[in-house]
Design a protein around this nucleic acid. Sequence first.
DNA 1: CAGTGGTCTAGACCACACC
DNA 2: GTGTGGTCTAGACCACTGG
Lengths: 253, 253
Amino acid sequence: MVDRTSGVPAFRQVAADLRDKISAGAYPPGARLPSERDLVDTYGVSRPTIRQAVDALRVEGIVITEHGRGVFVKPTPSIRRLSRHRLSKEARARNQGAFLADAEAHGFKPSSTVKVRFESADDRAAGYLAVEQGEELTVRDRVMRADGAVVQLAVSRLPRRFTTGSAIEQVDTGPGGTYARLEEAGHVLGSYAEHVGARMPTPDEASALQLGQGVPVVTVTRVAYREDGVPLEMNDMVLSADRYELSYEWAAD
Amino acid sequence: MVDRTSGVPAFRQVAADLRDKISAGAYPPGARLPSERDLVDTYGVSRPTIRQAVDALRVEGIVITEHGRGVFVKPTPSIRRLSRHRLSKEARARNQGAFLADAEAHGFKPSSTVKVRFESADDRAAGYLAVEQGEELTVRDRVMRADGAVVQLAVSRLPRRFTTGSAIEQVDTGPGGTYARLEEAGHVLGSYAEHVGARMPTPDEASALQLGQGVPVVTVTRVAYREDGVPLEMNDMVLSADRYELSYEWAAD
DNA sequence: CAGTGGTCTAGACCACACC
DNA sequence: GTGTGGTCTAGACCACTGG
């Protein structure tokens, strides 16, 4: 039952009580909570109030709701760790690029859909690629799948003057992928930078990545630089935060 | 007006329409949306339905609501970039550790509150620190502020056998911080690893970090290794995703 | 004060899952 | 069918903001 004198909204009291019971183990991962109509009786509030409480737990990512079945404690999914070593030259030599290297290491069956297009550089792209706004870019839109499920969206952008005449402007870039083609054209890779953030997904991303309720996305912008420091490529990646963790290692000093 | 024959729930149609208008610039960042009661007239649905639509935009992080004032398009906050160079020995020599180095670089006034306690290693800590479960750990709980506002929560754990007798078990670790004290005790730092993820905040984190509605947190677990590869410290950090971006750079191959 | 969002009620009907 | 969550209504009162 809720305390109507405390000043704390009823739906928050219900949410807090359910949250406590879940973390205490009264409802273990995968367990079904009592039905919303049962909770109405338990707490003595109306159904919309119960739904408001359940919604709060849903956006926190603690529970998921399944139409016609019930409300369930969200099972903790397994986390796949992506290491920066996925970009080594050795890995490139063996296959078609970073994503396939990861697939091989983890034993899932990769596939991807690619669309190539051209656009002019906006403010942000111009900044990362150190080109003038409006310069023509080659854009590769990729949807990557593991065993059929979409796991990553990636948009790669390169100044078109680095890609004319190469397979980078084709759907299939050939063995070693984009980076191998760049090196063949005399652009030797010198360094990488990755900028990592997180945000809530757009509805499009949520459905494409089959994101669970209350799951943010991790965004990674990778910039590849030539040996002389000239930016060659920027790659905007979007990953499901409950399935991926990014790892970086470096020597002290 | 909503289309009652399309099968798409009314609140989703309203949310999609508002979302489109916002991204088209009809409501620029910071602008106030029409009041919920005006939207009731505009779309011809009840107020709870309008509220459901606004709630959806809120958890997407597109708008914020302010009691008694209105619904506003969320302004895009400035992003602070944290580079891995914040851990260089040079930076340590100058001040009291990683957070203060970052503060100095960005010109804000840092402060932090520290609590020291001891606990036995759980499953996860034992894994990262390569110790037996139950081994005694020194735990430093830090709340970091920039110009008074909480910007980061950090929990640092070290096997206690590396810290007995050192200032690491004191609130004030002295110049150069924990890492400087470890090196003085003969534990020369060899490398770091950071594991980066994201999730929705707990209610405690949301209030401590003064998180906006619909803003996830970025979690970073940093492990510091001795030259011989023995883990010395793990540091669990929680950051507001709309205020921070993490940057990592490395040489190709 | 008027206008705003925040909370809550007591229903109703629908769509989906499972027996 | 029965039970589940999903959606929606037409109100009500409260708490906060700002003139």
